[in-house]
Write a protein that binds this DNA or RNA. Structure first.
Lengths: 211, 211
DNA sequence: ATATAATTGATAAAATATTGACAAACCGCC
DNA sequence: GGCGGTTTGTCAATATTTTATCAATTATAT
């Protein structure tokens, strides 16, 4: 049933969207759906959906379609949202605080256990039930709590140093909101970039070039 | 020199990254760069860079490379960051406030002129020098100020109604932080989605599937 | 002034991603 | 229990994107 082969990046990037869609259908109490109906709702082709899902195994049934509850659970497992990966936030400025309070980390497989900032004045302030710690305590905290993921919401100029430190401290994944370019220097590190200003400039281009 | 043809989405999505990189080189006082050197720094192939840039015209010179100042300016024009598109923010919760204060709208071609929220209690509070207005004032504000873009930082359940209202009010672009799926219902509308939880789940997948 | 090295822009080739088509399997009705 | 209609999983075809190659052009050193 499973085909633990290489999965292409475009497919991986679509999985979370399937997951969210199924989440919605599930909440509405819908039991099954065909690739055709799903394609109509999501604005994709049915062929693509079937091809994507088949990378991971045959979740559907001919003449019936896909069972939503089952498919939702399966994709969740594939994405690892059932995990509880210990996670720290670095940078408690406007953006960092918003990410901490806004994101449902636990529903996506993460467990936010620490918040750090280099600004002494913030130390002690609470975010989502966690105290902001001064960045100087990062080493000891990581030694004691072994976070596997760090969310980076700091200015670009501090990013290089922090990333090197985090890698040494055995952090395996970075959710990177900075502009700093984490290249292939760290082969064992997973990086997911969120470049908000790139997204904004893309919108700008689209605006200026729509018919 | 210009080739005002169709530009593929992958190319468009890379433009902002080129722009940011050139911004950095420029600040460091570097005058010229070859596609080869740039490729090394950005982690792309030189061939791709040359091909991408050539979609818009021959900015380089054989034996020399690209003049950074000129290329920076040209890509800026292509992206439209020299514009000042009047923009409103809808939703002044954690995320909305962070986006308003954190993003350099004016450096990316936008001008934030209004902030709205449905929470009466927030009304009057200031963000980035702008008062939070109650959403009921949206119609009049748009009539008087004609914003062309809206940043959407509201719960998914309110999104459909707001989008329809915005389109009627002649808004042409949406920077969408909600999970609401703006499909092809509005052909004249440009939409750029920022799905943070998709990004987070992608990281989760990568973590669970790295060698 | 000329030769050499560097580098682009363009074209061709290769790799990757998406879509179409259809046999096989299954549902559900009669 | 069989039959018509539905829908998947898979394979082949098409479309798109990326990479490699190279002639033409220019910079730079001597």
């Amino acid at each position: 049933m499973k085909k633990a082969n290489y999965i292409s990046l475009p497919v991986i990037k679509r999985l979370p969207r399937y997951y969210r869609f199924l989440e919605g259908l599930r909440k509405n109490g819908i039991e099954k759906i065909s690739s055709n109906e799903l394609s109509r709702r999501m604005g994709l082709t049915a062929s693509q959906i079937r091809q994507d899902l088949n990378c991971f195994g045959g979740f559907g049934q001919q003449g019936y379609g896909y069972n939503i509850e089952q498919l939702y659970t399966e994709i969740g497992k594939i994405l690892g949202v059932d995990k509880n990966v210990p996670t720290i936030l670095i940078g408690a400025g406007n953006l960092g605080r918003a990410i901490a309070t806004h994101m449902e980390f636990s529903e996506r497989g993460f467990d936010l256990i620490g918040v750090f900032d280099k600004n002494e004045a913030l130390a002690g302030q609470m975010i989502k039930g966690l105290p902001i710690r001064h960045i100087s305590g990062l080493y000891n905290f990581c030694r004691d709590n072994s976070p596997a993921v760090a969310v980076l919401c700091i200015p670009e100029e501090n990013a290089k140093e922090i990333v090197e430190q985090l890698v040494k401290l055995n952090v395996k994944g970075i959710w990177n909101f900075t502009h700093y370019n984490i290249l292939g220097d760290f082969p064992s590190l997973s990086v997911e970039n969120v470049h908000l200003s790139d997204s904004l400039m893309t919108l700008s281009y689209q605006l200026n070039n729509s018919k």
